[in-house]
Simulated assay, not measured.
Amino acid sequence: MPRSPTTSPAVTPSDPAPPPQGCDGTSPFQPDGPAPARSGSDRLYVTVTAVIVVLPFVAIGLAGRHGTHLRGQSRGLLHAHVGRLFRNDRTPPERYAPDLLADRDIRAVARAFPALCVLTLALPFAVGWAIGGTWVYGVTALLWAGLVRIALLHHVTWSVNSLCHLIGERPFRTRRHDRATHLWPPALLSFGESRHNLHHADPTSARHGVDRGQLDPSAAAIRLLERLGWVYDVRRPTAERVEARRA
């Protein structure tokens, strides 16, 4: 008896895997898979970063007193940078700045200082909101053009009191135990104030960066105000005066 041909069951092809979807800016993100294990280079990067960030604070914390050793210098550096602001030893302006106290315009600026602080934060928020159209843009502008700007400005200013008495060059003679230096990296952001060695050598000089290639935006601003007739009796160092103070 002839055998009937057998038919194999139909095989349904499996559905192809859907292509990965990209983010169109409105759809939710696709769930991520398991995070890959950290490699040796990743662990080394995290370790080195942690050491760089934490070690200075550990050194400052271990510092017992001011002195010439590492612990004392670390503590002194912290005090010169920001610690002095938390001590109740206010400098008497009547003794050190009587001319400023007698200036009517300076007194008006001092009285308006709280309002100026509010204004310098409110303006970035308002401009960011006006440009972006939402409060998120306002907060972003407040963060970068307000808080970050103020933090950067303060740390640059404080560095003149701390770093510019610890590291840098001393091309000019100063009084005994005077450690003021020229530190070029923050020169532009500090408007030339980090050329601090000459300021101690010649305190009445309106210019701190006197050598070739030394930027001094403060001196340029003073010169502009002088040409406009808003300042006068500006004391600039002569070549003979500068050379007489070189170390």
Rank of each mutant, 00 (worst) to 15 (best):
T7S: 01
P9Y: 03
P9R: 04
P9C: 03
P9L: 10
T12E: 13
T12N: 07
P16F: 06
C23P: 10
F29C: 14
A35C: 06
A37V: 12
R38C: 07
V48F: 14
F57P: 03
V58R: 09
L62F: 14
A63H: 09
H66K: 08
G67K: 00
G67Q: 08
H69R: 14
R75F: 13
L77D: 04
L78N: 07
H81P: 04
F86I: 03
R87P: 06
P98M: 06
R104P: 13
L116R: 02
C117G: 06
L119M: 09
A126S: 11
V127F: 09
V127A: 13
T140P: 01
L142S: 07
W144S: 12
H155K: 00
H155L: 11
T157R: 01
T157I: 06
S159C: 07
S159N: 06
S162V: 03
L163S: 03
L166R: 00
E169C: 09
E169R: 14
F172Y: 15
R173C: 12
R175I: 10
H177T: 15
L183R: 00
P185W: 15
P186C: 08
L189K: 03
H196V: 08
A201D: 10
S205G: 12
S205F: 07
R207Y: 04
H208V: 05
G209N: 13
R212L: 08
L215K: 01
D216L: 07
A220L: 15
A221C: 13
L228V: 02
V234Y: 02
V234S: 02
V234F: 01
R236Y: 15
R241K: 11
R246T: 05
